[in-house]
Simulated scan of single mutants.
Amino acid sequence: MKQRHFDLLAIAGVFVAYSITIRFALQADVRGSLLGGVANTIPVVIFGAMVRRIILRRLIGKPAALQLLAHLPLCVAFSALSYGLLMVLLGLLFDGRGFSGFLVKPFSISGTAWQSLENVTTYALIAAMTYLQAQYRRHNMVPSAPAEAALVPEQLALAGNLGMRAAPDYAAVPVTPALEEPPKEPDDSRANADLSRYFVRIGDELRPIDLDSVVSIGGADDYAEVRTLSGKHLVRMTLAEFTKSLDPAKYARVHRSWIVNVHRIARAEPAGGGRLLLHMETGQVISTSRTGARLLRDRVI
């Protein structure tokens, strides 16, 4: 399900839940229940979207203690702003005078306490759903089988023929073969040829991967997942390291968590805010950042 569809369903669910609750808890008529549902849903949508944006862009990936500390002021701000906007909307919708001097009435002490608890609970649900959303985006970063591979450059594989040291799975360990004389600096064409092919190590076996078959590379901390036309491989290598070794004419870092093979983009569509949704040849959908979208738009003729 696309994110926008999920968001619309979530908004509809919040509205229905509030409307039903007001209908039976406060014995309101249908009109009052629907207006109360609207008044309670609007603050959740506005400030919930802001909270989700902050969590996705500013908190995820930070140390757990820092995230926990940041959630405290975020929760307070969400609760206070939602409470204030709710009072304004209730006055606007139920006072009967419209925008011309409607009356804003604060809740009673017990009502304020109940609304505050409700706002804190709502914030917790929004934060939890946001983390689940981020986890869903990166769920493929977890190894799905014991035979996951670690990526090593071709020259390391060749060095293995001379005696590669044993290394743990998922670790790319550089090995320098013993040579009688220092190796010569390769020219640019040779360097590009060396980087045109990588090997994956599955147990003690090395298998080649042609970089032209790579569709995308997703990063999470010190690991990356390389998706090819035929499968995917978990790699202990950062996106920054990949960016330095890949051909910029073929590969673009379209997000801080994604590198894509521009030759494997089936189509791109606007995603709002200057971003793009990239539909890859494998069916994978990747959302770019604004900077990544500009990089791709620079290639438009």
Rank of each mutant, 00 (worst) to 15 (best):
R97L: 08
A224I: 08
D247Q: 06
E241I: 10
P168R: 01
S213R: 15
L69I: 05
D222S: 15
K232E: 12
P168Q: 07
K62P: 06
N119L: 05
L9H: 08
I265L: 03
A25F: 01
L276S: 10
S82P: 02
R165H: 04
L93T: 00
Q67D: 01
S287C: 09
Y131N: 08
R227S: 14
L86N: 09
T282Q: 09
F102T: 08
I54M: 12
G91Q: 04
L103Y: 06
A65S: 04
A266V: 01
V260I: 05
E281C: 10
D222V: 13
F102N: 12
F15V: 02
A167K: 08
N261C: 00
L26I: 00
S19L: 11
F107H: 13
A149K: 07
R236W: 06
V285W: 10
L211S: 07
I209H: 12
L158H: 06
Y136I: 04
I217C: 13
P248N: 07
P106D: 03
E281Q: 09
V30K: 05
F15R: 04
S144L: 02
L206S: 08
A171C: 09
A28R: 14
P106N: 03
G283P: 01
I11Q: 03
N261Q: 09
L74W: 05
V142Y: 03
R4Q: 06
Y131C: 10
A49K: 02
I265G: 04
I22Y: 11
